[in-house]
């Protein structure tokens, strides 16, 4: 059995759905962040797979951009979560709803 690009796409789809589910179902901000990372990397996988299939470098270049931006985003996000946790002793996003309209 050979591994075709379709498998990669399927795996990416599974990972993406898991990540989406995590975001929608979990309350802990930290876990939600991990879910976001999962979704990002699912997309990265599709990029790399497609790039390999089409034999171009663009896919891998895009992945590097995504990783860099994601790293930066995580730094800011984690800092916020830590700061919130220190003040409120909780990281549950449902309790952080002061911005309700």
């Amino acid at each position: 059995m050979t591994v075709t690009p379709g498998w990669y796409m399927a795996l990416a789809a599974v990972l993406f759905v898991i990540g989406t589910g995590g975001i929608l179902l979990r309350r802990n901000a930290l876990v939600m962040f991990m879910s976001v990372e999962l979704m990002l990397n699912a997309v990265n996988l599709t990029f790399v797979a497609a790039g390999r299939e089409l034999n171009v470098l663009d896919g891998q270049v895009a992945v590097f951009f995504v990783m860099v931006v994601a790293a930066a985003e995580v730094v800011v996000g984690l800092a916020i979560i830590v700061a919130v946790f220190r003040r409120r002793q909780t990281a549950s996003v449902d309790e952080l709803s002061e911005l309700r309209g």
Binding site: L24, L25, V93, S97, E98, L99, R100, G101
Partner: peptide, 8 residues
């Protein structure tokens, strides 16, 4: 009302 404050 659209702005519920719930991230999820």
């Amino acid at each position: 009302p659209l702005q519920t404050g719930f991230v999820r």
